[in-house]
Write a protein that binds this DNA or RNA. Structure first.
Lengths: 185, 185
DNA sequence: GTCTATACCATGATAGAC
DNA sequence: GTCTATCATGGTATAGAC
């Protein structure tokens, strides 16, 4: 157990704020170090590289996303579990909202995060999420509708981040459900 | 009139491909120059800076988007022009599809493009587009639904870029129309 | 275990020769 | 219109002080 305000934690907090506000590659390590009153190499004691620092910030969200689908996938051997689209989309919205600052960072900077193989991981759980919504072997048309639903909701969690959750969630989920059910699976 | 394969044009083509494939900041000017068999300073003869190069690639898409809304906005003094949502969303999809390579670049690298004030411009025409869809003074809930529709369609133009237009457009527009009309304006 | 001092290399950018 | 030479900056990495 580390102390509540140890250097590592403070670095993570400052880096996260600057990365989200002005971009990952637009934030120099010097800038982070200056903000904390330490030197650049001191960062390298706590994090092996810039990539390591980014990874430590992004990992919790990725874990959350992957756990979300894993928990809802049918147990091995069991038939496909039925999921109410409204409930599933609503729960997904809550998760996207919870991680909205890191989510915007990931969406807006995929190229920077490519070395972390984030693209592949996102693509994977997004695909699994679509299967949960549509059942096995959905048509291409249905997958496209699901993409509108999921992508649109993610956009809302990011674009209306300044509003209270209760005001955004309802309309966003209603619209997503409508998009999803507009095309037969 | 420039010759069909002058250096400037070749630079733009190569830069565009590399920027889209591996990211703007992940592509060095050296890499672009090497690919063309010229040196870095030669690039600086044709473009004042890296930013100028990026701007030249992004500008046509931004112009297209801004013209799209301007053409459809009511003439000064006239009442709000009525727009069929399905038609408007369909036309917008065509435009997003046409510029999908640059669009993915802009969406995925907003921080890199911040100096070009692209965020403000995108926000502006997106807002105007929402007004065209919903009429003046829409509720927040309706705006959220419109964001799901527009954001979801953009995602589709990017994610299903490898499929033929005819296969993607239909389902994407249907889903977007459903999302938009799910919430009262 | 925590940090400073220092060096190294790639990059964006400019000046001036051809 | 293109090149050689050069500079400042910033990411990375190591050596060593405390």
């Amino acid at each position: 157990m580390a102390k509540p305000t140890d250097t590592r934690t403070r670095i993570l907090a400052v880096a996260r704020e600057l990365f989200v506000r002005q971009g990952v590659r637009e934030t120099s390590l010097r800038e982070i170090a200056d903000r904390l009153g330490i030197t650049k190499p001191a960062l390298y004691y706590h994090f092996a590289s810039r990539e390591d620092l980014v990874r430590s910030i992004v990992e919790p969200m990725m874990d959350g996303m992957e756990r979300f689908v894993a928990e809802r996938e049918p147990r091995d051997g069991a038939g496909p579990a039925a999921h109410d689209p409204r409930e599933l989309l609503g729960d997904y919205f809550d998760l996207a909202w919870e991680h909205r600052d890191v989510l915007v960072m990931v969406i807006r900077e995929l190229p920077v995060l490519a070395p972390l193989e984030l693209g592949e991981r996102m693509f994977s759980w997004r695909r699994r999420l679509i299967l949960l919504l549509l059942g096995p072997e959905p048509t291409t048309a249905a997958q496209i509708a699901a993409t509108v639903a999921l992508g649109g909701m993610s956009d809302c969690a990011v674009e209306y981040a300044h509003l209270p959750l209760e005001q955004v969630k309802g309309p966003a989920v209603e619209a997503a459900v409508a998009a999803l059910t507009a095309v037969p699976a």
